[in-house]
Design a protein around this nucleic acid. Sequence first.
DNA 1: CCCGAAATTATACGCTTGCAGAATTACCGG
DNA 2: CCGGTAATTCTGCAAGCGTATAATTTCGGG
Lengths: 216, 216
Amino acid sequence: MTQERRKFRREGEAQRQGDLIAAALDLIAEGGPQAATVRAIAQRAGVTPGLIRHYFRTKEDLIGAAYAQFVRRMAEDHSATMDGAGPDPLARLAWFVWRALCPPLTDSRTVGLWAGFLHLVRNDPRMRNIHRTGYLSFRDPLESLIGECLAATGRSLPPRQLQAEAIAANALIDGLWLEGSVLPEDFQPDELPRLGVEKVGALLGLPLTDHLEDMQ
Amino acid sequence: MTQERRKFRREGEAQRQGDLIAAALDLIAEGGPQAATVRAIAQRAGVTPGLIRHYFRTKEDLIGAAYAQFVRRMAEDHSATMDGAGPDPLARLAWFVWRALCPPLTDSRTVGLWAGFLHLVRNDPRMRNIHRTGYLSFRDPLESLIGECLAATGRSLPPRQLQAEAIAANALIDGLWLEGSVLPEDFQPDELPRLGVEKVGALLGLPLTDHLEDMQ
DNA sequence: CCCGAAATTATACGCTTGCAGAATTACCGG
DNA sequence: CCGGTAATTCTGCAAGCGTATAATTTCGGG
């Protein structure tokens, strides 16, 4: 009855770190930071708790790494999708909005992570920096895109007003992101991205709806 | 050296429950649910931990009561402010937007609470009901107000499109609320509510900016 | 084939958590 | 002024937390 020691396989550092981070993100997304205990993370990653401390000096380090990956992945996902968007600014802006309001950016997992990390971000300067980077990597391209679109239609704004337009457009996207992520059952598929493209167009006075057919 | 027992005053049930709820909300707003331990709540409320169980069957009950009060108070605060807004629909809509983007609705405490409760709301049907009630008490009046404004300017929409306008306007407000609450230092006082009134007007094609002078 | 290094598990410790029940104290009605 | 009630404090417990470290297992290189 001497219960034998558990068998295991050796894995590379990158693999195990990745597994642990993924497990932590899953748990935070579902149940908030309180659900991401050392033991729960280890179990979901398929290892024993002690291993966490072999790859991360402390639990806080692991959570920090998880947040960094979360932010980086969001930014990468969205900027990568812009690569195949063609040259026309209007089409690009429509595509930008559309993609922001589809999974994986808009879904309940993402908003769960966002909310779960909020307090950690607010109380830790290191995390706040990570956050700001990701936030600007979304808002800055949006502002450029809006500038190009206005220029293409013959209008042109002073920087101050252009920034205000970007803030408002960004807010509209954020708000739809929020509503769609928190109450996904209240919207049909495509309803949210369609509404986003239409209303960002209305906000800026741009005929974005012309490009709705290109979406998918 | 027999350290003597702590002195205390008896308080009514309502008073003590209110204190405990307020303490719990403060802690959640600042540090998330994990900061709201039984002992921390009691300390901030100026009592000993055992008393919590005298007024609430369990900690979960207390948190639930706290959330209910949070939602109710938000709704009350905002609807109460509409009382002195006059009869003109346009002025009322402008006021509605303006007030949503000022404290106490827009500030870091509110977004902290919102994020802190998100996971509890998602995983507990009882809390989800409370949430939905509060959410609709904001969106429904907004939809009515938009309908009145459009009717007053001679336009009229089928219900489906009116709802879409309300969702978009609500999203714009939510998004500005989010940005202003998370990064308050990025905006000057009045910048956010002003932007909100202006852009909600742009979104709906309504001259809301005419009423900006009435705000304060 | 086997040995050493490193990855992984196992065990243990001190602290905090939510909860329970007994002991005490404040206050009200007589 | 005094006794009873219930509001409040106090003490303790079992479970879970993050962390530390020793014991084991895996696996590639000689």
